[in-house]
């Protein structure tokens, strides 16, 4: 407890709190769209595919400059989604196998590059493997500012274009009919997902960041059927998970941040599954009797 109070007065820790809060909120909001588009596992593929991008950028520029590494992550993430689409369109491989192939091969290649970097470069690569599970404690102020600013920007974009995104999602024909740029909006949504994955990997890690997009919206789904309320609720759930994960993992030594954040989200999901007012377990029991 004392350790927690001392760290609370630490300026760096305050930044981490703000960052995890905004990151959790943004991923909950954007994840709501991902969930309804049935792209939850594709977002997992994007996250895993970020690893080789980070490593390639490090190999090219030989500095641990976070924005440059994240640009690399975004490029390979986008490449992964395109590759999945391409495999599905051009061969007899089904969606699930296509996602599985891309996840495992991109991640495997990322590990190859990571070990190559560890063997061949001097100490400056330290901390590159914290991209796998995320480590809030090792974030410096500029990292957290990037996470906070980025997450805030993504939420603003989503809120401003909320009605357009919603129409494109539920009734693309009608959206096209009233003159909305549907393919642009779809592309923008893809960009938002890649962006949230990329800015989140430092804190949550490539393996589990997708959970932050999947679990809070799924939990929110047990309380409402209205997309707007669902997105806000998912944002709040995500923010709670982010903050509790950051706090617990910095107070208990040796705990990686990502898994703790995900476990917090899972706990919220479990509670919603049991007590949710829309199709929750207890409610179904009561109705069933």
């Amino acid at each position: 407890m004392e350790a927690f109070l001392t760290s609370l007065s630490n300026a760096n820790f305050q930044w981490v709190l703000v960052g995890s809060l905004l990151l959790g909120f943004a991923s909950g909001v954007i994840g709501s769209f991902v969930l309804l588009k049935k792209q939850s596992l594709i977002s997992d593929a994007m996250a895993h595919a970020a690893l080789p991008g980070v490593c390639i950028m490090f190999l090219i520029f030989e500095v641990k400059n976070v924005p440059i590494l994240l640009i690399g992550a975004a490029i390979t993430s986008l490449l992964a989604t395109q590759a999945i689409q391409f495999i599905i369109n051009k061969s007899r491989i089904k969606t699930d196998a296509a996602i599985g192939v891309i996840i495992s091969v991109f991640f495997g290649f990322g590990i190859v590059l990571l070990t190559y970097i560890q063997q061949n470069s001097s100490g400056s690569q330290a901390g590159l493997d914290s991209f796998i599970f995320g480590q809030a404690a090792s974030l410096v102020k500029s990292d957290v500012q990037l996470i906070s600013g980025g997450a805030f920007l993504l939420v603003v974009i989503t809120v401003l274009l909320f009605k357009e995104f919603k129409l494109t999602l539920f009734d693309p024909q009608f959206a096209k009919g009233i003159g909305l740029p549907v393919s642009f909006l779809n592309g923008l949504m893809l960009f938002l997902v890649v962006a949230i994955v990329v800015i989140g990997i430092q804190m949550v890690g490539v393996i589990l960041i997708a959970a932050l997009l999947i679990t809070p919206p799924l939990a929110a789904r047990y309380w409402t059927e209205n997309l707007g309320i669902m997105a806000i609720l998912a944002g709040i759930f995500g923010a709670i998970s982010g903050v509790s994960g950051a706090v617990i993992s910095t107070t208990v030594v040796g705990l990686p941040t990502g898994p703790v954040i995900v476990l917090s989200a899972s706990l919220i999901f479990f509670i919603s599954l049991l007590f949710g007012t829309k199709n929750g377990f207890l409610q179904r029991r009561v109705r069933g009797v």
Partner: peptide, 29 residues
Amino acid sequence: RSGVQSDAAIGVVFTSLFALGVVLIAFIG
């Protein structure tokens, strides 16, 4: 079967159990 789409069901189950495993490893590691 309770109505969650299958990709999201897979996503939430495996990330939860995997995260639990990783956290437990951190304690006994």
